[in-house]
Amino acid sequence: MVKTIVIYVDIDDDIGDLGFSTPIIGEEKCKLTLDKAAYFMPTDSDFNSMVVAFNIYTDLKRKGEDTEIVFISGSKKGGTESQLEFSKKLDKVIEELSPEYAVVVYDSPDDARAIPIIQSRLKISAVQQVIVEQYRGVEETYMLLAKYIRKAVTEKRYARVFLGVPGIILALAGILAALNLSVYIEPTILIILGVAMVIKGLKIDDLIESWWENSTIMVITATVSIISLLIGVINLYIQLQIVRGLSSIQEFAFIILQILPYASFSAIILFGGKAISKGLNRDIRVWHDIIKIINIVIIYFILFTVVKDIIDNTYILTFQSLYTLILASIVIISIYITLTALEKYGILEKLIKRI
């Protein structure tokens, strides 16, 4: 059992570029990694962080502390994937060494994301952030700038922002200019930049990536659902430019009538995706989503009839429509109550297993 481990954190797996896989445990293996890093990346802040971690380890060892050094990396994918990978590797280290305390060494803000993960498993006795300060002339500054530009272009997590967002802006600006809609270029740029900031700021891209790994079906259906809503909004805007002379209540009904098919399709495709996902996993709760889809279909036809009557100035539901509505509601409520009871007492699960 080791009392203290000195952890060098490499959340974006730069060590992988040297041909090593982590966790790297022990003085000899870490020294071998340092020697190779000194040759291939002597000016990189990661190398300096490794050196600092190794020096802390040797200093503790000299003082008679029961200590060990480990290098732990995450993943090139960045975001949640890196943290999950780091967490798995940390568990391996703890299982092998059974430490009580940790000294954490890191250099970048991304690496700092590993600190709460370590803290959830070990007592952190010290944290050291390595900041490399150097004086550079004009030529060295250009070399450093070129290095970061190359990193922004070649590394996936940076390329999404530094290439993806400007690429979308340039493409849309070109399309709008070709269509003689140059007046919309500036608002389009502001919208794209705003959306990109919201996505990165709220880590929506990490969330979508996590969804994609857990359920590809849900990501696809959610995308189709959002596209459907956007098309509905565009169609509504176009129709409102054409239609004139409606009263306030008729205009409100007209808005509902135009957006209703797209919103209904959006909800149906979303719950349909959940139902398919649950069905593939043999989850008996799939019937919840099926009932929701049926309800959406019924609500669609009811709302369609009502708003159509308002626009036509009739305001009257026929007796047949009302009878059909009441009958459908009774049937759905009865089915829902029956399935809920069967699920509660485990009968539904037994029936599905027999099928």
Rank of each mutant, 00 (worst) to 15 (best):
S108D: 07
L97P: 05
E100I: 13
Y106F: 12
A126E: 15
Q128S: 10
T141K: 15
V130C: 07
E100D: 10
L145Q: 06
Q119A: 02
E100G: 04
A146L: 12
R150F: 01
L144W: 15
A112L: 05
S98W: 08
V132N: 00
L145F: 15
G137Y: 07
I117R: 02
E100M: 06
V104F: 02
A152C: 10
E96D: 06
L145H: 10
V130Q: 09
R113D: 08
D107M: 09
R113K: 11
I131M: 06
Y106A: 00
E139V: 15
P99F: 05
E96L: 10
S108F: 05
D111R: 13
E95H: 15
A112N: 08
K123T: 15
E140M: 14
E140I: 13
P109Y: 09
P116K: 07
E95Y: 09
S120G: 14
K151C: 04
Y142I: 13
V105S: 04
D107Y: 08
P109N: 08
E140R: 14
K123W: 11
A152P: 06
Y148I: 14
P109F: 10
E96V: 11
T154N: 02
Y135C: 01
I124M: 05
I124T: 15
Y101R: 04
D111P: 05
M143D: 11
I118A: 02
P99Y: 04
I115P: 02
V104W: 03
P109W: 14
A114Y: 00
Y142S: 04
V132C: 00
Y148N: 08
Q128Y: 11
I131G: 02
K147D: 03
A152M: 13
Q119G: 07
P116R: 04
P99M: 06
Y101N: 14
P99D: 03
E96N: 03
E100F: 08
V132F: 01
R150C: 01
S98I: 11
V138K: 11
E133D: 07
V127Y: 03
Y148C: 03
V105A: 01
A102G: 10
